[in-house]
Computed example of a mutant assay.
Amino acid sequence: MNTLLLGVVGSTAYGLAHAGSDVDRLGVYAVPTVELHGLHLPIDKAATVVRHDPDQTVHEARKFAMLCLSSNPTVTELLWLPSYEQRTPLGDELVGLRTAFASADGVRNAYFGYATAQFKRLLTTGQFQSKMRKRQSKHGRHLLRLLDQGYEYYVTGRLRLRVDDPERYREFGDRVAADPEVARPVLAAAQEKFDGATSPLPLAPDEPAVEAWLRRVRKEYL
Rank of each mutant, 00 (worst) to 15 (best):
H59I: 01
H59C: 06
E60W: 10
A61F: 06
A61P: 02
A61I: 00
A61W: 04
R62F: 11
R62H: 12
R62V: 13
R62K: 09
R62C: 05
R62L: 14
K63Q: 04
K63F: 02
K63W: 05
F64H: 00
F64K: 00
F64L: 02
F64D: 00
A65Q: 04
A65N: 07
M66D: 14
M66L: 14
L67Y: 11
L67T: 09
L67I: 10
C68T: 03
C68V: 01
C68M: 04
C68Q: 00
C68S: 08
C68G: 03
C68F: 03
L69F: 06
L69G: 04
L69V: 09
P73L: 12
P73T: 10
T74P: 04
T74E: 09
V75I: 15
V75K: 01
T76N: 12
T76G: 07
E77Y: 07
E77Q: 15
E77V: 07
E77C: 10
E77L: 07
E77N: 09
L78P: 01
L79T: 03
L79P: 00
W80L: 01
W80Q: 02
W80K: 04
W80H: 14
L81A: 14
L81H: 11
P82C: 08
S83E: 14
S83C: 06
S83D: 14
Y84E: 01
E85G: 08
E85Y: 10
Q86I: 10
Q86D: 05
Q86R: 13
R87N: 05
R87K: 15
R87M: 12
R87F: 05
R87I: 07
T88R: 03
T88I: 06
T88G: 04
P89L: 03
L90R: 07
L90P: 02
G91C: 06
G91I: 00
G91M: 04
G91E: 05
D92R: 03
E93S: 13
